[in-house]
Design a protein around this nucleic acid. Structure first.
Lengths: 220, 220
DNA sequence: ACCTGAACACCGTTCAAGT
DNA sequence: ACCTGAACACCGTTCAAGT
């Protein structure tokens, strides 16, 4: 109805909105409807759906590196903050992780994010080789964790709690003779929310990474 | 041609083969062709495609827990071995991680895997709460890492090396004024293969987890 | 009891025709 | 220069009809 001129900008914005509103894949038909335009009009602005999705991913990653504390003030806190934001961006957009899988987006915001992580890891005292290995480790945990948790995160909180409870009872109801430890620890599985579990994992990983700083207690 | 009676077993086997042979999604038409049967015949044996995929995932996870060293002999080595196998299973079957995202498979082999990991983490000296948190951390890193690396792992080794080199030069060619650290460390990014990078991440994570054992140097 | 084949609703994408 | 609308190839799934 309120037809405006179709631009890449408008398409990306509409796609990003659709993406956050649902777990499902975006459809070009949906996109056309939202924009009040023929479903195929979009081919005048993007090569194909994949190109659109990459543009959307750039837009979503733009939130990750804004307004961070000054470089090297507290490397660990900054790394945690970046990873939290990166995870949130992916969790809020379930379909995004699929794109990252096929390779780094190699766009503006992704370069900013990489630079900043590498700066902090170097500031922590890691040597070049260890810094890049730590960078990869952080990305794999963060993006991987988001990919796993995204589907459930899209559901409302109590549906989520119900699902966790369902999974817990699946373990609780196993044969105690065959699965004694699972049965005993069933109540502890999937405790808290996925974000807290990620924080624990990230803390452990950073403890281990800190051990690679020359002169640290654990370094070889 | 060599028509045999169609069974769930035969369908799952054919699907697993197709899945390992390609990065693409399986098609019911493909499946019908391989089995020498009408594409829709499969609905006599499975509710829908999703049910088939879950059965396939069980089959693939069956390799993870076979022939492990006896419980609690060397918890860290056993955990590493389980995670390596779990990652390999997922990396070899790119479409699998998508299923795990929507929830744990809750089938035989997945229960075995969970039980074994929890047993080892308890044997390491972790308290129940810490053991389950560590379990989640290990799964998120392992499965997440596999999801990220799977697409590229499907390509032949030299294509993979070329891709890594292309990514490295993307960083190398950035503006050194804006991205000094990325440019300087570009040559170190994506070094070795994905498996080695995963091993580094897993080692760091396990270092951090070991710090949660009561009485360890790092425990609070 | 199991399989076939036509049919359906829904994808992404192409392309000639409109303005 | 940009959009429309018909068309195409391809999905998963249903269902009446065959054996």
């Amino acid at each position: 109805m309120a037809r405006a001129r179709l631009t890449r900008e408008l398409i990306v914005e509409a796609a990003a909105t659709l993406l956050t509103e649902s777990t499902d894949d975006i459809t070009l038909a949906q996109l056309g409807e939202v924009l009040g335009v023929d479903p195929t009009a979009f081919y005048r602005h993007f090569r194909d759906k994949d190109a659109l999705m990459r543009a959307v991913s750039d837009r979503i990653l733009s939130a990750v590196t804004v307004d961070l504390p000054p470089p090297a003030s507290d490397w660990r806190a900054t790394v945690v903050e970046i990873c939290r934001r990166l995870r949130a961006a992916h969790v809020g957009n379930p379909r995004l992780a699929e794109l990252v899988r096929s390779g780094p987006p190699l766009n503006r915001n992704e370069f900013d994010l990489t630079e900043r992580l590498l700066v902090e890891l170097r500031a922590a005292g890691l040597k070049p080789k260890a810094a890049t290995m730590a960078y990869h480790a952080l990305i794999e945990l963060t993006v991987g964790s988001a990919a796993i948790d995204a589907a459930l995160a899209a559901e409302p909180p109590d549906a989520r709690r119900q699902t966790y409870e369902r999974w817990r009872s699946a373990y609780r109801l196993l044969d105690p003779a065959e699965y004694p430890t699972s049965v005993r620890l069933a109540g502890q599985l999937y405790q808290g929310d996925a974000e807290q579990r990620f924080q624990f994992a990230l803390d452990c990983l950073l403890d281990g990474i800190a051990g690679h700083v020359p002169g640290s207690a654990r370094s070889t």
